[in-house]
Amino acid sequence: MKHSKENYSKEHLLYLKKRKNNKIIVLSSQIGLLVFFIFMWELLAKIGAINSFITSSPSKIINTLGELWTSGDLFKHMGVTLFETLAGFFITTILGTLIAIILWWSEMTRKILEPYIVVLNSLPKIALGPLIIIWVGSGTSAIITICVLICIIITIITMLNAFLSCDEDKILLMKSMGASKFTILFKLVLPYSAPNFISMLKINVGMSWVGSIMGEYLSSSAGLGYLIVYGSQVFRLDLVMTSTVLLCILAGLMYFAVALLEKYYNKKHR
């Protein structure tokens, strides 16, 4: 039996309080850890225990950020990488899901293409980088292509497995009601695979950042990956560290957006 809020028992109130306290402890520890890390980094750099020329320091990172801001480069570089990553992410998601649908639809195609997918999956896609630059030209298009290439195979495999895991009896049920394959796809298989779709998105957030940064390492004239390579070549490790921090923030935000989507889905359906 459920009680209304006013007449919770003492025991239940205690339970709720304990739960809340736990949450507070976890969150404050998480923040505390970060603050402690930044503080120690700064302190050790200041007293010379670590060489801030190699490790940089929080204050130097902030200075570098300020410089990038005043020169107007900050948003240019962030924007370039973000654009490449998002383009790679969306192209991969849409194209990968479409290919997975085609493979689900036709068992013959699936069987024929299986060995190719397996080989492509184990191939380190970055090895194709130089080839891609020659084919599509250096710059943004090459970077997006590399990004898509790195993410798409695993997307196809994940989504195909999700589609194929759909209960045979559920498909039989739809068939016994006279459903066409098209109807089965849209009314059963796709909504059934929604949770897998969301976890695929989560994986692709990480993968598409790998893709775009790898692409920028190979060929670029702007972007956070470019700054990292450039910074390390001219030994400006402040720049490398700053770019890495910015990457952390952007990737975190993107993951957070997908997590929000998941929360919304779960609220509606679970």
């Binding site: 559920k170 739809m174 009601m177 006279g178 009314k187 909504p191 059934y192 679970r270």
Partner: peptide, 21 residues
């Protein structure tokens, strides 16, 4: 097993056949 579709309400589940046809 009942094979109700978890993402559909009871009403949406029972009209599945009508929807298909």
């Amino acid at each position: 097993r009942d094979h109700l579709f978890e993402w559909r309400t009871i009403w949406q589940n029972v009209i599945l056949g009508l929807e298909i046809q």
